[in-house]
Simulated scan of single mutants.
Amino acid sequence: MTQPDATPEASGEAAHFRALESLYAAAPINQLFHSRLEIPAPGVARIHFEIDDRHYHAAGAAHGTSYFKMLDDAAFYAANSLVTDRFLLTTAFNLLLTKPLKAGPVIAEGRWVSGQRRVFVAEARLIDVTGEEAARGTGTFMRSRIPLAGLPGYRSASPEA
Rank of each mutant, 00 (worst) to 15 (best):
Gly104Leu: 08
Gly137Ser: 07
Gly110Phe: 04
Pro100Trp: 07
Phe93Asn: 08
Asp73His: 13
Thr130Ile: 09
Ala61His: 15
Val106Cys: 02
Leu88Asn: 00
Phe120Thr: 01
Tyr154Asp: 06
Arg155Val: 12
Val106Arg: 00
Thr84Leu: 12
Trp112Gln: 10
Arg118Cys: 04
Thr90His: 04
Phe76Glu: 02
Gly115Thr: 06
Pro147Lys: 09
Val121Glu: 15
Ala74Ser: 06
Leu151Glu: 03
Phe76Thr: 01
Ala103Asn: 09
Ser114Met: 13
Pro152Asp: 11
Thr84Ile: 07
Leu88Arg: 03
Tyr154Gly: 05
Arg111Leu: 11
Pro100Gln: 10
Ala108Asn: 01
Ser66His: 01
Glu123Gly: 04
Ala135Val: 01
Pro147Ile: 07
Lys69Ser: 14
Arg111Ala: 05
Ala134Tyr: 00
Pro105Asn: 10
Gly104Met: 09
Ser81Thr: 06
Ala135Ile: 02
Phe93Gly: 02
Asp72Trp: 04
Phe93Tyr: 15
Arg118Phe: 06
Gly131Pro: 07
Thr98Phe: 09
Leu89Val: 10
Leu89Pro: 04
Lys102Thr: 05
Gly150Ala: 15
Asp72Thr: 03
Lys102Phe: 13
Leu148Trp: 04
Ala62Leu: 07
Arg111Trp: 05
Thr91Phe: 03
Val113Trp: 03
Ser156Gln: 15
Arg117Glu: 13
Arg125Asp: 02
Ile107Tyr: 06
Leu88Phe: 06
Asn94Arg: 14
Ala103Ile: 03
His63Gly: 05
Val113Asn: 07
Ala122Phe: 09
Ser81Asn: 08
Asp128Leu: 02
Ser66Phe: 02
Leu148Phe: 02
Ser81Ala: 11
Asn94Thr: 13
Val113His: 05
Lys99Thr: 00
Ala79Phe: 04
Leu151Phe: 05
Gly115Pro: 04
Ser158Phe: 12
Ala122Gly: 13
Thr140Ile: 14
Ala103Met: 09
Arg117Gln: 14
Ile146Leu: 15
Tyr67Val: 00
Gly153Lys: 07
